[in-house]
Nucleic acid binder design. Sequence first.
DNA 1: CTGTTGACTGTCG
DNA 2: GCGACAGCCAACA
Length: 106
Amino acid sequence: MKDNFFDKVYEVSRQIPAGRITSYGAIGKYLGSAKSARMVGWALNKCPIDVPAHRVVNRKGLLTGKMHFSGTSLMQQLLENENIVVVDSKIIDFDSLFWDPSKELL
DNA sequence: CTGTTGACTGTCG
DNA sequence: GCGACAGCCAACA
C-alpha cells in the first residue's frame, strides 16, 4: 500500500468531474502541502491514460502541461470537449470551473 | 551517493 | 503588475 503523493494525485485526478478543472496546487494542498505542486506535475508526468491530466492545469488556468501531450492543441481540444472554454491555451471562467478536491471531494 | 531537473506556488522587492 | 528566490520531493544521469 503506497499512499504516496503520486497515488493520491492519480486518484484525485480521476475523481475530477467532467467539465471541471483543478490546479496542481489544489491537489497538492489536498494532499497536505501546497508547495508539492511540483510532485503533482511529476506524477502526471507518468501520464497514465487512466488519468485525465488535461483537467489539471496551473493556478493561472494556463495549460502548462499541454506541451507534454501528444500534440500542442490536444489538451485544449480535450478541455473544449468537456464544454470548457479555452483560449490561447488558457481556461476561461477558470474560477467558475475550478474544482477544489479539499472542498468538493472532501 | 551527489547533483540537476521538473506539467508549481507563494512571498519578497 | 512583474521579476527573482525559495521550498517541496522524486526520478534520472
